[in-house]
Simulated assay, not measured.
Amino acid sequence: MTTTKSLRLGDLEFDYRVCGDKKDELVVFLHGFPETSIMWVELMPEIAALGFYCIAPDMRGYSKNACPKGVSHYTIEKISNDILEIADTLKPGKFHLVGHDWGAAIGWDITYNHPGRILSWTSLSIPHSRAFASALKEDKEQKKMSRYIGFFLLPYIPERFVRRNDFKAFRKLWKRSSPEALENYLTVFRRKPSLTGALNYYRANFRKGRKPIGDVEKPTLFIWGNRDFAIGAFGARKTRDFIKGAYTFLEVDGGHWLVQSNFDEVKAALSKHLSSHREVPKRKGKTYQTPGNL
């Protein structure tokens, strides 16, 4: 069962979901846009059953009491530091990291810049930043797919557009989400500071450009849907060029929202990946499911 808690880091208070035994290895799940940690509630118990302690924070901008005013507060560096501090507070030491969409963009950054903290890394939908940068420069399909980013960089107008007709545009993106998740998303994005905070991820990290990260050496799983409306094949397949450690690329017949549309495939691949890269063997005297039983 997944429960919701909160913790304070300085002036900010983060909400997070947790599932599993704190004595087990930590797995941190990072949500994307426009979602919250509730996107992981069905997957977390499945992973906890394998012998992992799972946490999923509502990141900066999404947690009600963690919405600092101003674009400069939403750089990847600051959000990455939030995640590391949350992990340190809840269970110090190394951890496994899983991210989707913006959570994946942040996860790539953490995995590269803080490799000593990471046991394994899993990205859903989002390629390595250098692969994505190459796609934006060289691939016509990706250029077309990413036009929306320029719109999100504008002040005020994106907020008004998103709120129009009670979030009609976003409701199309949430059509596979549960009623509980839908209500959670509406609650969060109806808060003006949260919607602006979420959009500030784009404004803080695309306006001036950002130096892509280097090669990743940690065990990496990358799952991409070949019908993704936001990420094309060029960047997805080029990611291999920037991984120097163990690497698994799984292409599935799905779109961008892989946890909802390809749950069983994501669960199986993630279960195998995490179980293959434990820091220590499973504790004696405790029985867990194995990936083969899922």
Rank of each mutant, 00 (worst) to 15 (best):
E183C: 00
K218C: 04
K168G: 02
R176Y: 12
F229Y: 09
F151E: 13
L199V: 07
A230I: 05
K168L: 13
F234Q: 04
S177P: 01
V162R: 02
I223S: 08
D228L: 06
L221K: 03
P155S: 09
F161C: 12
A169K: 03
P212K: 03
G214W: 05
A230Y: 15
I223V: 15
F151G: 13
S178V: 07
R164L: 13
A236K: 03
A236L: 02
N184V: 00
F170H: 14
R171K: 15
R176E: 14
R207M: 04
I223W: 07
I231H: 04
Y202A: 05
G209W: 05
P219D: 07
A169E: 11
F167W: 04
T239I: 07
R237N: 15
D215G: 02
A198K: 01
W224T: 11
E180K: 10
E159C: 10
F229Q: 13
L182T: 05
R210V: 09
R207F: 00
Y202L: 04
L186F: 01
L153G: 01
L199S: 03
P158Y: 09
G209S: 08
F222L: 14
I243D: 08
E180I: 07
F167G: 12
A204K: 00
G235W: 02
L221C: 09
I231D: 06
V188I: 15
P155I: 09
F152Y: 12
A246Q: 12
A233C: 09
A198S: 13
R240S: 15
D228K: 07
A230M: 12
E217I: 09
Y201C: 01
L199E: 07
K168T: 02
I157P: 05
R237E: 15
D215F: 02
R190D: 15
W224P: 13
E180Q: 10
K218Y: 01
